[in-house]
């Protein structure tokens, strides 16, 4: 691209001198003064509580009795690793996260390819597609609870079309269906965002490459695998990591749809931390689970950062 611009001479006309990098001004105390309040603020409200949580995972905290916490060493961790539920929760978290990534990014990619084509009312259709993303989570849950009502839910009309289904299913009482719906609802809410990002990436692929390949007799499938996918690959990788963070964090939808049930079928680690702390009031044990969740999210964040810096290098 840049070599093309150089060849046509446009770059020389716009700025005869190579522009200085953006960050050219003298070093100063000012940026530190600007950043300091933000760093302090985030330390007070995010870093310090997390440190407290890690510290608390080595203690036994009884909030109700107001007695001082006692130091118990690794007891909470010993309990956690010997708890068969721990591995179950980890497995559920993995299944939920992977399914949401596949469904949400898959749908996002397909809709982006579709909406990248030319048709009338395209801008209207695109705006409509963004609606689920713009909706707050609580009303989204309200809508789906109503749609899935075994008594009057509209989705039953569809289910009844399947041969053999003569009664409205108890959608959220059957483990596999409950998991399916939580994944679908989370993906429905998330996919427009991925679609929009992929669409932006698709539009930056130069059309000439496609034209050239078509002249050479490439089939649409070949165009997709050899041009489209490689050109949006870094964007897709970035979105996979981002989606794994977003779905790993997911709380509101699962909590309000199933609460982690039926019998733990949708209990991800985030749900487990909540239930342990605020349903069973076992704060210390919950913080041990919290540390496990913290480590997982740090690992995903690390992937995000390394992908992002690779992307920045590619651009430069």
């Amino acid at each position: 691209m840049s070599s093309l611009a150089d060849a046509s001479g446009t770059q020389d006309r716009v700025s005869p001198v190579k522009p200085l990098p953006r960050t050219r001004r003298r070093p100063h105390i000012l940026p530190y003064a600007l950043a300091l309040p933000i760093v302090l603020y985030e330390i007070a409200l995010i870093v310090y509580p997390i440190a407290q949580g890690i510290y608390g995972s080595f203690q036994q905290i009884e909030l109700a009795s107001n007695s001082p916490p006692t130091w118990v060493g690794l007891a909470n961790y010993q309990r956690m690793f010997s708890d068969p539920d721990f591995w179950q929760v980890m497995k559920t978290t993995l299944i939920f996260t992977v399914l949401v990534i596949i469904v949400a990014i898959g749908t996002g990619l397909m809709t982006a390819l579709l909406f990248n084509r030319d048709f009338r009312f395209r801008s209207v259709a695109r705006a409509m597609l963004m609606l689920p993303w713009a909706f707050p989570e609580v009303p989204v849950v309200m809508i789906f609870v109503w749609i899935l009502s075994p008594q009057f839910g509209v989705v039953n009309i569809l289910a009844r079309m399947i041969p053999g289904v003569t009664e409205n299913p108890q959608w959220l009482q059957i483990p596999i269906l409950a998991m399916g719906w939580v994944v679908l609802i989370s993906s429905w809410k998330a996919f427009p965002f991925y679609s929009l990002v992929i669409l932006a990436a698709l539009q930056s692929v130069p059309q000439e490459i496609y034209e050239a390949a078509k002249v050479d007799g490439a089939t649409p499938l070949q165009l997709f695998w050899h041009i489209t996918i490689p050109s949006i690959r870094t964007t897709l990788e970035l979105l996979v990591v981002l989606a794994s963070i977003f779905s790993f964090k997911q709380f509101t939808i699962i909590y309000l749809m199933t609460g982690g049930g039926p019998s733990g079928a949708t209990e991800t680690i985030v749900m487990r931390i909540f239930n342990t702390a605020f349903r069973f009031y076992d704060y210390s044990y919950a913080t041990a689970f919290g540390v496990a969740g913290f480590i997982v999210s740090l690992v995903i964040t690390f992937f995000f950062i390394s992908l992002q810096s690779r992307r920045a290098e590619e651009r430069a």
């Binding site: 509580p49 997390i50 949580g53 790993f248 985030v270 702390a277 913080t287 919290g290 913290f294 999210s297």
Partner: peptide, 16 residues
């Protein structure tokens, strides 16, 4: 800080 799940903060922050 942007990537950390809210649930990790909610318990210790509740205590604080």
């Amino acid at each position: 800080t942007q990537m950390l799940p809210e649930i990790l903060i909610v318990i210790p922050l509740y205590v604080i």
